[in-house]
Design a protein around this nucleic acid. Structure first.
Lengths: 358, 358
DNA sequence: TTGAAAGCGATACCAC
DNA sequence: GTGGTATCGCTTTCAA
């Protein structure tokens, strides 16, 4: 079993022509090939362990059944990773394979990554980012059907559909959860506004207060960073040496790592979570949120769903216009943006407002 | 710019034959094609924006320049991810592209993932796992040059080279770091032994004590789990309500999440890290270890290096035996195991042993 | 030095 | 029903 068997080998063994083999193995045997030949062909294929050479099929059909994925930081993060996992599952279920090129956040590599993928004759392209962010679609990307996941191009002319999380709504529902627990003095910890996730979540937070007819206290929105230490120091500022009446009763964090920092600070100050102060995370980070002590109440980012939705849309577009290599259709494509809702996950880090603070 | 230009288009524009185009663009023009034709060809290629169709090249050359990567949980974790990132960088630098198939820890999907990759005519295969673990190499994998990263096949006959971290040494150096700081009563927290990382790191830990002529106190090695809550509860068992003289002065954790749990527990008990108790992590997990409060001293897993080393070896093997599809060579391949050393990263969570406890 | 022609492996059309 | 044949885009002898 040195060389893989080819269709010709199968044809010889079955005593038919290559064409017959092709027809039968592609399910179009009935009405074209005699029943009995069909059986012989299938048997021959089985004994030779024949599977078609995907490269040859691609060349012949002018479609590779490969989807190229460009990611700015793919595999290093659980974020991108999950988006890609969701996308890949959908692709695989339809006989596609994905090849991902990681630009390692170097935007100058965008175009070359796309070019490499295009040389490989990918049928479609997907651009994925770690954090929600605006970007300029690499020009080449318009040559084949494409989709953006967790990012968007705000230039109207770049008509590439995008799938992004509904951050505003996420921020609103997080605040609402706490409001319903009776909290009135809620702080919000986020990172800088380079990532639009911060302002959007903050927007949702304010929306919730407004809808409830409640004010957001001044100085309660802190943009401190995205990591554990930022959460720690932010919480210290909010809680350390502050009179009970002046302390927020709940702190919403724009990600789970910030929440870890907040709990670390609370522990150090002898404050119990959630009895003295409720803490919320965001992202539902794998192996972090669920196993924290206490387990974090958080807003789960719909990463897999986003990846799946983006890929589903892309493949649908592909099958709509078979054989078209994108040149003409690119302009016609509508520049829609799909907002995928986040999911509130209630665990143990949030609880009713402490007595006398509502 | 609808259809991509082909070599024929270039040939026409330059007024030469396809062969000439091929020769020149592949760098074998000198001595075969007139200087002046060469210039015309390059110009034509540039104006037409020509790049060769990788699919056609693959078919013709019977090598795809694609490396297939099978991962058991690729993208969801920062672990696999970094290995793949390291491997991919090496591959890309040599004009290869990687396509990764995630089995999502479902071992029954191993063979089919490999089969899919083989149908795509990958030139080589790499198997990557999230945690160090033994496995049975999928049979099909032996058909092309292959390598294992972060996993190994302990059946002697399966001659697939493996690249794995030197866990024993890692455990030893972690303990040595603490021993040098004067600690004598050091606890070790790990997960279960399903992953060989636990017993190996523990082995290293014991080795260090033995080398120092010191005993490991009974009950100081706890296999509690791999997550934050496990670390928290393990630490509580070790520290809560225990007389100072009976408390370990340092706790080594088999990963950084366990260390988070330990610090959380220490904070809650009013114990300062590292003044009252030193805490070490393992892995140097991205965005976690460096930003913890206090920043974690940890053993960095050489993930990128492992990926790079594995890919480098694989590509070397490929170029050694061009045109050979692995059938014959598989048996000849030596079953080596490359141990990559971990790297001690000293931060703020470890310090000198408290006075009177050394 | 250059170009014609033979595949790589598979598909699909078109006579027979 | 069946098998011959052109074709996908490229590389590589082999003649001229």
């Amino acid at each position: 079993m040195n060389r893989k068997a080819t269709a010709l080998d199968v044809a010889k063994l079955a005593g038919v022509s290559r064409s017959a083999v092709s027809l039968v193995l592609n399910g179009r045997g009935d009405g074209n090939v005699a029943k009995e030949s069909q059986v012989r062909i299938r048997e021959a294929a089985a004994t030779l362990n024949y599977t078609p050479n995907a490269i040859a099929v691609s060349l012949r059909n002018r479609r590779s059944r490969i989807i190229g994925i460009v990611s700015d930081q793919v595999v290093t993060s659980p974020f991108d990773g999950n988006i890609i996992a969701g996308a890949d599952a959908v692709a695989r279920s339809q006989g596609f394979v994905t090849v991902v090129m990681d630009t390692e956040s170097d935007e100058t590599r965008d175009e070359s990554a796309v070019a490499t993928l295009l040389d490989r004759q990918v049928d479609g392209l997907m651009y994925v980012t770690v954090g929600l962010r605006p970007l300029h679609v690499p020009l080449n990307m318009l040559r084949v059907p494409s989709v953006l996941a967790n990012c968007f191009d705000d230039r109207p002319e770049a008509g590439v559909p995008a799938v992004i999380p509904d951050e505003v709504r996420g921020g609103r529902e997080a605040a609402t959860h706490l409001l319903e627990l009776g909290h009135r003095d809620i702080a919000f910890l986020a990172g800088d506004s380079v990532y639009p996730a911060a302002p959007r979540r903050i927007q949702g937070h304010r929306d919730a207060f407004e809808a409830a007819g409640l004010p957001v206290r001044a100085g309660r929105i802190l943009q401190v960073g995205w990591d554990i230490d930022a959460g720690f120091h932010g919480a210290m500022k909010l809680l350390d040496g502050v009179a009970v009446a002046e302390r927020p009763t709940a702190i919403v964090c724009a990600n789970d790592r910030l929440a870890i920092g907040v709990v670390l600070a609370a522990n150090r100050l002898g404050l119990a979570v959630p009895q003295d102060v409720s803490v919320m995370g965001y992202d539902d980070e794998f192996r972090i949120a669920a196993t924290m002590v206490p387990a974090l109440t958080t807003m789960a980012l719909p990463l897999r769903e986003m990846g799946a939705a983006a890929m589903t849309g892309l493949l649908a577009e592909l099958s709509e216009e078979p054989g078209n290599d994108g040149g003409a259709s690119a302009g016609a494509r509508r520049a829609d943006q799909t907002l995928v809702p986040c999911r509130l996950v209630v665990r143990e880090s949030t609880g009713p407002v402490p007595a006398g603070r509502n």
